[in-house]
């Protein structure tokens, strides 16, 4: 056997370890998944609205401005935590937020919005979770940034924290330009 070949195990070893090292030092959350809908159109859906008498029709709603889509439910406690930031998006930044009420009791949801304040321009009801599946949602709360023409630009999984709030604002500014 050629002597040079004996160095192969060490080279392979170094390559593998460098991959591990790279993955360790970059800031990454192993359980976060990139959305498969990025840069694609929002899924079409029609749903009852929690607040209005007419149905919510997605094709009519998305189009001109930047919209946040937030999946929430009253039974999900992280949703309560992030509600402050959702309100700040709507009230301070003047961004339209659509809240999709996921597998929830409608009376509870109305009560919830009454107590905590309603930042949503409309609240379509996703009774059986099918709308969420069309959006590729796997754990609420999830928040999407949708730009004009209804194209999804970003998805955040989990509650919006101060850090994420800043990040989303920055992204929105970038998209606007």
């Amino acid at each position: 056997m050629k002597k040079q070949l004996l160095i192969i195990p060490s080279i392979l070893f170094v390559l593998i370890l460098s991959t591990f090292f790279y993955l360790l030092i970059i800031e990454r959350n192993p359980s976060e998944l990139p959305s498969n809908l990025l840069n694609k159109n929002v899924p079409n859906f029609k749903a009852e609205s929690l607040l209005k008498n007419e149905n919510f029709v997605s094709s009519k709603e998305f189009g001109n401005e930047i919209i946040l889509v937030n999946f929430f439910a009253t039974w999900c406690s992280p949703c309560r935590d992030e509600h402050v930031y959702i309100k700040r998006f709507a009230n301070e930044k003047g961004i339209r937020v659509i809240g999709i009420n996921y597998k929830d009791n409608s009376n509870n949801a109305i009560e919830w919005l009454k107590n905590l304040g309603n930042p949503y321009s409309d609240v379509p009801i996703d009774k059986d979770g099918r709308i969420a599946i069309d959006w590729g949602v796997y754990g609420i709360p999830e928040t999407f940034i949708v730009k004009s023409k209804g194209i999804i630009k970003y998805r955040h999984v989990g509650p919006i924290t101060k850090k994420i709030y800043k990040k989303i604002n920055l992204l929105i500014r970038e998209i606007e330009q």
Binding site: L33, N36, L37, I133, W135, G136, Y138
Partner: peptide, 8 residues
């Protein structure tokens, strides 16, 4: 499924 959730 993959349209919505990717190959994952």
């Amino acid at each position: 499924l993959t349209d919505r959730y990717g190959d994952f």
